[in-house]
Design a protein around this nucleic acid. Structure first.
Lengths: 217, 217
DNA sequence: CAAGTAATTTTCCTATTGGAAAAAAATCTT
DNA sequence: AAGATTTTTTTCCAATAGGAAAATTACTTG
């Protein structure tokens, strides 16, 4: 392709051009989703009930699918419509990553738990993962419910754990079970068996946008 | 309209009927959104660049809008597309919780992984937890890096896993190790040992902001 | 309650989508 | 490497969306 120097050009996108480029990006995402499942056009066509040609055109941004076809596609891809558009958001901070080796965590002991914060040196994470040990036969103080904004996810790695959720029956979780809840409602964990339980907890806090990913020094 | 008693009717919805009713619900939501702003059809037409008649038909479920028009409407209504569809499923209501028992997950197989989405029925979670099995000695296609907005957290539950991060040396994680990274950089997992590896992955996406969850005391 | 105005729905027509099948590319096989 | 097979793209046409303006319905206001 020949390169032309652009002089004094001012790029002004019309409304149509905007949806055009949006549609093309959407097409890419669609193709990715299909490929991720290892499906061919024919395969997805069968699952969604659309024609092969339609999907092909949509993936290349040649046509703008109608609502109906979008809905069918979503069901074919076994996701929901929202998933299509959730990724529509913008650019991201330069990528970074961190590794936590087993055992090299920052310990944080509380009355009921022993927590090990997983990436304490990482700031502005959108999630806060931690490992916890619940001592066996621990007394549970029911007036000491924990409450904080955000959502929380817990998996039982070892042992049996009872989760007390404010205003609900206690839930008993075996190894491998998990619970997802709004951490604004009071909650409390306790080991349920004879031995200590190990849990993995991941929290989010509202407002801690993942786009702010950065390291402190 | 005359009412006919329906006898012995068995309700079987075809794929088209499903999208029909979906579209009608969508129309209602659309109208609600417009009314919430106190806008007339003409007002929204001007803001979105669509014809009045088009919006009218869409709101009544008579036509299925194309992707392009949906995008324009979203911008006219000053929201993102995801907002249109968020209400479509069960949202993760403030103050709610859900439990996933070991084994009752929605399986999602891809070429390299077998994923089990943990709470597929919950919408508007700020985190997406899933369990994955990485088959042993799996060939890794290095041009097939996965990239998506948000951040990702991975713990090795069983086995040894090598994480390939775009532009960096591969990282080998033993059981109990974890990694936290910006999922916008290309990433790829592979089992490293003789046996399959089990991993727990939790993702966030900037679109599914927990801030949309409002708490009231 | 009638006339006037605003908001919505219908109508009619053109532009675009979506499907079936043919053509072209890509991938696999021997 | 040539043929067979699979996957994707193109072509062509019927079905549907989308816009302009007319017709209808819903609101005001005197």
């Amino acid at each position: 392709m020949a390169m032309h120097p652009i002089r004094f050009s001012v790029s002004v996108m019309t409304k149509t051009e905007i949806t055009d480029s949006q549609r093309i990006k959407f097409g890419h995402r669609l193709r990715e989703l299909r490929r991720k499942n290892g499906w061919t056009l024919a395969e997805l066509a069968k699952r969604s009930g659309l024609a092969i040609s339609t999907i092909s055109k949509a993936e290349r941004g040649i046509i703008a699918l109608t609502y109906d076809r979008l809905a069918q596609l979503a069901s074919g891809l076994e996701t929901d419509m929202a998933a299509f558009f959730a990724a529509e958001g913008k650019t991201f901070a330069p990528g970074s990553f961190a590794v936590a080796r087993k055992g090299e965590f920052r310990r944080q002991e509380t009355t009921n738990y022993v927590y090990e914060m997983l990436f304490p040196e990482l700031w502005y994470k959108s999630m806060s993962p931690m490992l916890g040990t619940l001592k066996a036969h621990e007394l549970v103080e029911f007036d000491a419910f924990v409450r904080h904004p955000g959502q929380e996810f817990l998996v039982v790695m070892e042992g049996v754990v009872t989760v007390h959720v404010e205003g609900g029956e206690p839930v008993t979780l075996q190894q491998g079970d998990s619970i997802y809840f709004d951490s604004a409602i009071g909650h409390l964990y306790a080991s349920d068996g004879d031995k200590d339980a190990r849990i993995l907890v991941v929290c989010t806090a509202p407002g801690s946008s993942p786009s702010k990913t950065s390291y402190k020094e």
